[in-house]
């Protein structure tokens, strides 16, 4: 309800609120996944496994647009804005620094919204394969989406042959972010 945490809110309350921010965001990734052509042709088991492995990375791409490098603030999907300083005080400093760095790199590619959406689809289906049963089906879907992304990007920017490879190089960045930060702790108040 408050864009910037006032002094009257305890750090615990801010932390609870921050933790809650992820809930609607995760639900939106699930809805987004269902809209990816071919995703729901995968077995439900494999859909769940990809979402469990890839949602954090999709969120990292999605959250990039919520970073304001000039103001050094982050706005979450429930509309609340936190300064980097206040979030750092909650112990999220290393994650946020890594995300500012990632968002600057991704932002420099100046993707259009549809390109960003297709990139997020590629990110999701490129997630870790542990636990996937029908690996072939997932790989075929990944190949189709990468082809579509390449076609979209190169048709719009035929003179920039480096853009698509640079974009694919963001995939290992996302895996690193995932490995370093998905074990961060959140706290939810039990009333």
């Amino acid at each position: 309800s408050c864009p910037v945490a006032p002094a009257s809110r305890s750090s615990q309350e801010v932390w609870e609120s921050f933790s809650q921010c992820f809930t609607p965001a995760v639900k939106e990734v699930v809805e987004f996944a269902k809209s990816i052509p071919g995703f729901q042709t995968l077995s439900q088991h494999d859909q769940v496994m990809l979402l469990k492995s890839g949602t954090f990375q999709v969120l990292m791409v999605r959250f990039c647009s919520l970073f304001d490098p000039k103001e050094r603030t982050v706005t979450f999907l429930n509309g609340q804005t936190y300064s980097l300083a206040s979030l750092r005080a909650l112990g999220m400093g290393s994650l946020l620094d890594a995300m500012f760095e990632f968002s600057e790199k991704l932002g420099s590619l100046c993707l259009e919204p549809d390109e960003m959406a297709l990139f997020m689809a590629v990110v999701l289906v490129s997630a870790d394969r542990s636990g996937i049963v029908e690996v072939g089906a997932v790989e075929q879907l990944q190949e189709n989406l990468i082809k579509a992304l390449r076609s979209l990007i190169t048709s719009r920017r035929p003179d920039d042959s480096t853009l698509f490879p640079k974009l694919l190089l963001r995939l290992p960045d996302l895996r690193t972010l995932n490995n370093q930060h998905s074990d961060k702790l959140l706290a939810f108040r039990i009333d």
Partner: peptide
């Protein structure tokens, strides 16, 4: 006094996804 459920971001994501699919079955 308030009590908290503490979990990792990964576990929280897993929990939401499992709930969503169970709800839609």
């Amino acid at each position: 006094p308030k009590t908290h459920r503490v979990m990792t971001l990964a576990d929280h994501i897993s929990h939401i996804i499992t709930q969503d699919f169970a709800r839609n079955q």
